[in-house]
């Protein structure tokens, strides 16, 4: 069902058109991956069904085509998550250089376990697979940014910065 309260800003709609323009006419479905990223960034941080329906309507494809994609890829959130999703790499090379300890430090600081969200809705802690940054392990990603060669002090600094900034942080393709 379309929910009229769900609407991209004019700037975001402009971006959607740019994503679509990357593909030949009639192939606008290809833009769905980028548009879903943008939807998470603009429309509350996760993909509730009404948002996916809205994306389907923008791309003129069936809602099921959007659900199929949204549920396949790990960067899309199908449930509410924190404003900041801290995605700590827990794959082999990072594990060799302290990923478990990094995760434990986050768990301790935030009072939650991997996979959980803080009660104030600020942070979700997630374990993710190799981020292509194994040479600067341990690492995590949040929003657009990579945080590499992490230690406890840098984590403290990062968390303080987020609390000050206090807004939904999700990656999406920026185009001029």
């Amino acid at each position: 069902m379309l929910d009229n309260n769900i609407q991209f800003s004019p700037e975001a709609l402009n971006l959607v058109n740019k994503y679509i323009a990357k593909f030949p006419e009639g192939k606008q479905k290809s833009a769905v991956i980028a548009v879903l990223h943008l939807a998470q960034a603009e429309l509350g941080g996760w993909l509730k069904p009404e948002i996916m329906d809205y994306v389907a309507s923008l791309l003129n494809i069936k809602p099921i085509e959007v659900y199929e994609v949204a549920t396949f890829y790990s960067q899309y959130y199908m449930k509410p998550v924190g404003k900041y999703v801290i995605e700590v790499c827990h794959t082999g090379p990072c594990w060799l250089r302290g990923a478990d300890e990094l995760i434990a430090y986050f768990e301790n600081k935030l009072g939650i376990k991997k996979g959980q969200t803080t009660p104030d809705g600020m942070f979700t802690l997630k374990g993710v697979e190799c981020l292509a940054a194994c040479g600067t392990a341990p690492v995590f990603q949040c929003g657009m940014d990579y945080y590499e060669n992490m230690d406890n002090e840098k984590v403290d600094f990062f968390l303080d910065k987020c609390r000050q900034e206090n807004k939904v942080s999700r990656p999406y393709p920026v185009m001029n």
């Binding site: 990357k22 030949p24 657009m144």
Partner: peptide, 18 residues
């Protein structure tokens, strides 16, 4: 018509390439 497909985690690289 050619494409560079970048993993979604590397969005900042997408933006550099753009």
């Amino acid at each position: 018509l050619s494409y560079i497909y970048v993993r979604g985690e590397l969005m900042y690289v997408v933006n550099i390439l753009q």
